[in-house]
Design a protein around this nucleic acid. Structure first.
Lengths: 117, 117
DNA sequence: GTTTCATATTCCTATTTGGGAATATAGTTT
DNA sequence: AAACTATATTCCCAAATAGGAATATGAAAC
């Protein structure tokens, strides 16, 4: 059942926070690190997990790996991402992450030429 | 994060099928067994899992344990159950389960006095 | 009180998971 | 080519999970 695969992706806090950020647009690994305040290996592994299950896609830009939500989403994935967005809107953790993302968006754009944020 | 707890409940096929049936109303363990065609221990354990996390509630009626969706649901749970319903509507597995449930509803009502179905 | 019935629990095993330390890789810069 | 950067992977461990066989529980029937 494809639904199960989707829910497996959603049942970890770090992955939820990653998906929440990605809803705003593509982002590279080091910026996830900064915004979420989590070690590189953790971020990288969770992104790998999401990628292996087709929720996100990657593109290399120089040294940076820029991740984005997969372009081709099943109806089920679309519905669940929308639901997550809905829930995230009211949750302190997710709001805080988005606030940090916006706060640093300019620094990000200036410092790294990876084109994300 | 409460959301993670919810998604953990949703990332198993048997539990999804259980929740899909419960959306139609309360049901006792042996009827889950029949409709889902799964062994007693499996059903019972997954119901225990859902119960421990507050998604379902139980009430004893004679020998039967009748499960139902928890009456007090957070906004997040409500949203995700609705989303699941939405996805289930288009999935063969879930539709088949519901068909079987309806087909046997009368037998159930006649055979066991547990008041479910 | 013993049997029966519906359900829960225990015990076991195999698999998956999350996390971190250390290391590898692949581009970029010098 | 050597050094550096951003990221991925490997190796380890502890914990959670799913499943089934066997057994326990608790209410009902006899």
């Amino acid at each position: 059942m494809e639904l199960v695969r989707i829910y497996e992706c959603l049942c970890d806090a770090t992955r939820l926070r990653i998906l929440n950020l990605l809803a705003q647009g593509p982002l590279c690994v080091c910026h996830f690190q900064e915004v979420l305040g989590e070690p590189q290996v953790k971020i990288s592994k969770h992104l790998g997990y999401l990628r292996a299950r087709g929720l996100v896609a990657v593109e290399r830009t120089g040294n940076w790996m820029v991740y984005e939500l997969s372009a081709r989403r099943s109806r089920e994935l679309e519905a669940n991402l929308a639901c997550l967005q809905d829930c995230a809107r009211e949750s302190p953790v997710f709001r805080r992450d988005l606030a940090r993302l916006r706060k640093r968006a300019k620094e990000f754009a200036a410092s790294s030429p990876c084109g994300c944020a």
